[in-house]
Design a protein around this nucleic acid. Structure first.
Lengths: 156, 156
DNA sequence: GCAATTTATATGATATATCAATAATATTGG
DNA sequence: CCAATATTATTGATATATCATATAAATTGC
């Protein structure tokens, strides 16, 4: 190999950290007895914060394709966490309304989420967390800037 | 909400950075004309580095379930990048051997990979990259330490 | 030496990810 | 106003991710 092996790169550590964190989160959620995935929970929390969000909006918030969001919404409706109905002002849109059982579940998961977040950041100082966040934001921005399909890179 | 919103946490930035990086990588690989996903490439590079690895070994290297690896190997065999045959010493195992077209593809992708990695780290100093790596490793270790369950898919 | 256990791989079921195409509706620009 | 365009959501196709289970083979422990 004439290039740096994946295992020796910062990208490998990025992948590893996220995978481990997601596993920590899901294991703690499972232990709580709630039938919800971490991705579904993140979607619901984002919706709670942005009640008027379209599925396209939500897909940007959670870094997923809008097709993925559409199917996640299907599942969340089946699970009884969301009601989906036509928006009256714009009939292309769907209103997504959390049910009582959804709100109850989120309330019950708040301490669980707080707990595993705290665990993941054990022995990190506030300054270190800020620095880590800023590094990650810079990395994300670099990646967007250098996308071959980015608008600002196009000549036409 | 009585807990910190996902958007304000370091975990959100972690997710965002990785998603953006993977999109940068895949877009550049696609532009190169090779019919390969970033995950398939990472698997092949790991296999090139560890020719005797079992699928279980590989699954640990790439942070995936061994079931995912088994199915990725299926696809890589179909695509003509791997030959799969029974190991003579241990007939539970399969020998996974990269084909000539696999080696050719990896060779051709080396400059592409170097290029997008460089782009992702634009304006990062060596010290910053090391610090970022060490933060990510600490975070990953914290998550492993606090896992409520010990599962089959963990690395040592 | 053989039963119990572990290991390696494969596969079924379900959820997710992404691209592409479609349909319905809303917006716009001439 | 209305044709062209854009937006929103859905669905098909394919690849992945994960858990659970199954099967075969190797290892172990008595």
């Amino acid at each position: 190999m004439t290039f740096q092996l994946p295992q020796n790169t910062v990208f490998y550590n990025l992948e590893k950290a996220l995978k481990r964190y997601r596993k920590l989160a899901q294991d703690h959620i499972n232990l709580s007895g709630h039938d919800i995935t971490i991705d579904q929970l993140i979607l619901l929390v984002n919706l709670a914060e942005h009640p008027d969000a379209t599925q396209v909006n939500l897909s940007a918030y959670v870094f997923k394709d809008f097709a993925s969001v559409a199917r996640m919404v299907d599942i969340l409706v089946k699970k009884g966490y969301l009601k989906r109905s036509e928006n009256q002002a714009d009939r292309r849109k769907k209103d997504l309304v959390p049910t009582a059982s959804c709100k109850k579940m989120i309330d019950e998961l708040i301490p669980v989420v707080k707990n595993y977040r705290r665990m993941a950041l054990t022995e990190f100082t506030e300054e270190e967390i800020s620095l880590l966040s800023s590094f990650l934001q810079r990395l994300a921005t670099n990646c967007e800037t250098h996308l071959p399909t980015a608008k600002h890179n196009q000549t036409i």
